[in-house]
């Protein structure tokens, strides 16, 4: 990479963030906001969908957060979708446009989307799992002719917890995207499917050996989604996941993200099911 992002790796210290301005903050739900962070130079196309940044607020701390914008749309900025759950994310939520945050990255291995060309792609994000998968979805949609069917199955707990609703609207109206939504608990206005994400699988048919499935969600979700995907006959090597772990360094030193012998920050966070199915600590 020949851009500002890489400069964080060339800084005198690998732990030193560069300070970048927040351009926009868009509230999504009660718990989530999207932050658009400006880059002094265009970010290269080299950042892969599925990679993450280490984001910090000086004096509070640092946390790994996946990039939510696609490389195709990350020119002079990138976006992260942040749920406030801990000290750092609560501090981020208290910031305003114009404030600065510390940024290191991008880190990790994203999804190898060049290998997915020509295939049908089935996205199955649950809850906040849409944040990293949105990066892949938009990247694929911006290169639409190179892919087969695009199927998106998205589940949230409640309608008001759905993320990126403008984009869900847009995908719903596109002829070349098959979007199915579900919520665990409906409200009075919800007219769609009610039930966990696995209840959506009966609504679609796939050509299993020509389909790549990509899923991301809370840890409890994977086992059930995997059963559906494997049950459909999608090969283990064509099922991709993004795994969450505690991370302190992002560069394979601090030890927190290790699952069995794998460092998630280096070898992941994107993995094919074939790569991790034998690891007890993975899922």
């Amino acid at each position: 990479m020949t851009n500002e992002m890489q400069m964080t790796l060339e800084a005198p210290s690998i732990y030193q963030p560069i300070m970048l301005s927040i351009l926009e903050i868009t509230p999504m739900t009660d718990l989530e906001k999207v932050f658009k962070i400006g880059l002094p130079h265009p970010m290269s196309q080299d950042h892969k969908p599925g990679q993450f940044m280490q984001i910090s607020v000086l004096g509070v701390g640092e946390a790994p957060i996946s990039i939510s914008s696609s490389p195709s749309r990350s020119k002079n900025s990138f976006e992260i979708c942040v749920r406030r759950v801990g000290a750092l994310t609560n501090a981020l939520h208290a910031l305003s446009p114009g404030d600065v945050v510390g940024v290191r990255g991008p880190f990790g291995r994203g999804f190898p989307i060049e290998r997915f060309r020509g295939k049908d792609i089935l996205f199955a994000p649950g809850g906040l799992g849409l944040a990293p998968l949105r990066s892949v979805i938009n990247e694929v949609l911006d290169d639409r002719s190179n892919y087969g069917r695009i199927i998106i199955l998205y589940g949230a707990r409640q309608p008001k917890e759905m993320l990126f609703r403008d984009e869900l609207q847009e995908w719903a109206t596109r002829e070349d995207v098959e979007l199915h939504l579900t919520v665990d608990e409906a409200d009075e206005k919800w007219k769609g499917n009610v039930g966990v994400i696995t209840t959506l699988f009966s609504k679609i048919q796939v050509s299993p050996r020509n389909t790549v499935a990509i899923t991301c969600g809370p840890p409890v979700m994977y086992r059930f989604v995997l059963m559906e995907l494997l049950g459909m006959g999608i090969p283990e090597g064509n099922i991709w996941l993004s795994l969450e772990r505690r991370m302190k360094c992002g560069v394979g030193k601090c030890g927190h993200c290790q699952m069995d012998h794998i460092y998630v920050c280096q070898d992941g966070p994107a993995f094919s099911y074939a790569e991790i199915r034998h690891l007890e600590e993975a899922l």
């Binding site: 910090s56 000086l58 004096g59 701390g61 302190k248 360094c249 030193k253 601090c254 030890g255």
Partner: peptide, 10 residues
């Protein structure tokens, strides 16, 4: 053993 935690102080 070399695993470490990272913390901020003000």
């Amino acid at each position: 053993c070399y695993c470490f935690d990272v913390r901020d102080e003000v």
